[in-house]
Design a protein around this nucleic acid. Structure first.
Lengths: 216, 216
DNA sequence: ATTACTAAAAGCCGAGTAG
DNA sequence: TCTACTCGGCTTTTAGTAA
């Protein structure tokens, strides 16, 4: 907060309406507003352009779709922690992942932690759901939920995660796994449960499901 | 968003509940989660501690009041741009500022822009209000409002600002001035109007006023 | 296990300045 | 005017390692 950063610039552009229209703003104005040099402002804009966060046209600047999406994601992350929405519901379709969820869930350390903290021994496999509302995924970035701690085996490091109890198709209890490691990948929710969800709920790739993230 | 930063760490701590309680988190876990080195994680924590953003106790971490406040400010800034609250109302008391508002408002360039964009020639002076809800000030960081552009006289640079039409004490039309230059100072709202507000509304230092930020 | 110091490399900043 | 390049200096990072 103390130091001005790229983020401050993006937010500045946003609050000037740069998401909807091209706004006229010189590098020296930006420099003055942020307390940086004109050269740095110029460099930052060049970087943003490279990263596809802004478009420029005749001394005018506009935020791209992508930038707005990312800022919105940040907003929703913060919203998730500051305003506890008690019962977010996601809908989406079943997809077959890379099957690496299977590997992780089969690790004794994770299994033990899940048993302890969620009260069930998970079926060795995850159900991957491509959610319809990827934006709202960030609402899950909040305090509640069981924390699964990281551990090491030899030199390999296995990251921590958070588990949020969930109700799949309004029927089966399970949990959503949110790895701590920030990942900006495809908007997939990984679900674990005691049972084999594909069998129990007769799911195939493309089947529609609902995930109620319950509060306990 | 691409690069992990101090902010990501703060938000991570927040979403793990670090605002309410001490959480156990090693520097190598942080390093893994954020994709940085253990050494950098360590250094960042030390910096945060110096800046009064976290407390540490026996390998445990907790966000301070200050950190939560600053993150909340960021949240409200974003909220202001993503969710247009149509009619924020502020309450507060009149304070006498440094009288530099007076100087700026008397500059011909600013006066002309205000006349053009707000439709009135401002009284040469600003009414400074210390608001009761400093947090909500960030809600004003949104798109709407007239943009006052920056300019230079000789070597002196005069920054840009945004003006939001407002109703003072539910009676007199005026505008709130939000300088573009990000300032983390005292939570003061600067008001301009056609008339001398102190006289017209019979205000003294300490008088209570309401500011309705209207939408047009 | 931890955390955090040192030192060298990598990256970032801004004055000067060109186009 | 404006933007953006170069380059010297400063800052930040990380590997190695001590405690």
């Amino acid at each position: 907060m103390q130091k001005k950063s790229l983020l401050d610039l993006l937010i500045g552009l946003l609050s000037m309406g740069g998401a909807e229209k091209f706004i006229t703003l010189s590098t020296s104005e930006i420099a003055y507003d942020l307390g940086i040099s004109q050269q740095t402002a110029s460099r930052w804009l060049i970087e943003f352009e490279k990263d596809g966060l802004i478009e420029r046209k005749h001394f005018k600047i506009k935020l791209t779709e992508k930038a707005t999406r990312e800022l919105r994601a940040l907003y929703l992350t913060l919203k998730g922690t500051f305003e506890r929405k008690l019962h977010p519901v996601f809908t989406g379709v079943v997809t077959s992942g890379l099957r690496d969820g299977e590997y992780y869930i089969s690790l004794a350390n994770y299994r033990k932690q899940i048993k302890e903290k969620l009260g069930f021994t998970p079926f060795p496999g995850t159900l991957n759901i491509r959610i319809d509302e990827p934006e709202n995924r960030m609402l899950l970035e909040r305090e509640e939920g069981a924390r699964i701690r990281s551990f090491e085996i030899g030199k390999r490091f296995f990251g921590g995660a958070k588990c949020l109890p969930a109700l799949i198709n309004k029927k089966i209890r399970g949990a959503v796994i949110i790895p701590n490691r920030t990942h900006y990948g495809p908007d997939i929710l990984e679900i674990i449960a005691k049972e084999n969800l594909r069998k129990k709920l007769n799911l195939k790739d493309g089947s529609r499901v609902t995930i109620d993230v319950v509060n306990k």
